[in-house]
Amino acid sequence: MSTLTMGKQSRLNLSGKGAGRNKTRKRPKSGTTLLTGGRSPRRLAGAGKFMVRLVMASLVLSLVAVLGVGLLFGYRYITAHPYFDLKVIRVAGNDRLSREDILDISKVGLGLNCLNMNVGEVKNRLDANPWIDSVTVRRELPNRLLITVREKVPAFWTRQGDGLYFADARGRVIAPMHPGEQASLPVLSVAEDLSDAPDVLSGVLKKMADRETPFTQAQAAWIKLTSAHELEIYLDGAGNGQGLTVKLSMDRWEVQLERLKVVWRDLLRRNEFDDAAIIAASGDKIWIKKRSAHAAG
């Protein structure tokens, strides 16, 4: 009995069919099944990150929208609140234009919301007026507006076509003269193509203002800058109302003016001033044309 049992065991071990079959056959790993038949972990992780980013972007956009609506509501609230309504409007620097003119031009008034007002547009409206040289507009919260203007100062009347216009000290046209407007200004006439005319005009007017001339701007009826490059000033009240013309070269008018002042004083000292019809400079000399038509030097 013992021998048979060992023989059977030997045959079984020698054939090895069951044992060999069990050793060679391997079960597939779970990782192999995921790689061949399903999605990889890397792809799943990327999809998860994309979803997170999408959710975050949606939250940010929602927050921005809420903030935008809140800011809009807040802006509308404060620009309609009576706390910011204008209660004080100060206008300074105006002379020719009245306070009412300034407010009408700028289109501002008491009760206008200080925050809802466009200061730049107010300034542009005032700058467009021909009489305003420069302007500053400043608001002081909560309810004050300050407007400071510098007006153009008329120095002459000048003709353009059939109209009479105001002009500044450099001969630049300011605005047309309207019926009812009054001013004691000399009439200006300037020949064409005189590039130095503005400097000569402003220089002569400054001399008059500083009392460095024997006559004033108010005494001048007209001032001409001629094509011969001469400066002519007609004083209608001089010579007992008979008038006097002063002529200077535009190139040397300052030097010639100093010499003219000496001759002017000499004529007054000798009581001959009223006899002079023209006092003119020629080079370095001053000559006088008397009313009797003969010249004297």
Rank of each mutant, 00 (worst) to 15 (best):
H81E: 03
K23I: 14
M56S: 14
L268E: 11
A19V: 13
D162M: 06
S15T: 15
I174S: 03
S184K: 05
L244D: 00
A228L: 08
S106K: 14
G171Y: 05
S292D: 15
A80S: 14
H81N: 13
R139A: 10
A57H: 03
V135R: 00
L115I: 15
L67H: 04
I174P: 03
L61M: 13
I132K: 01
M250R: 14
L61F: 12
G120K: 09
E230T: 10
A169I: 06
P28R: 10
L34E: 11
K247R: 15
N129Q: 10
G37H: 11
W157I: 11
N94A: 08
K289P: 01
I105A: 03
R269M: 13
L205D: 00
K87A: 09
K107A: 14
R96L: 11
A220D: 02
D127A: 11
L235A: 05
D251L: 13
E100S: 12
L61A: 13
V55I: 15
M250K: 09
L248M: 11
G180M: 15
K207R: 14
F156R: 01
L146P: 00
P214D: 02
A218V: 07
V204E: 05
I78C: 05
L205H: 00
N94D: 07
A218Q: 05
V137T: 10
A191S: 03
A281I: 08
L126M: 10
D168E: 13
G46Y: 08
S2W: 05
N22T: 07
T3W: 00
P82E: 03
T226F: 09
E181F: 13
T79I: 12
G46A: 13
D284K: 12
S227T: 05
P82K: 01
K261L: 05
E272F: 07
F156Y: 09
A238F: 09
N94Y: 08
I286Y: 02
L248E: 01
L61Y: 08
V153F: 02
L260Y: 08
G171M: 03
W264M: 11
T158K: 07
I102C: 06
F166Y: 15
Q182Y: 09
M1R: 04
K29T: 14
F156Q: 00
G93L: 07
I174Y: 02
T216F: 07
L194G: 07
D104Y: 14
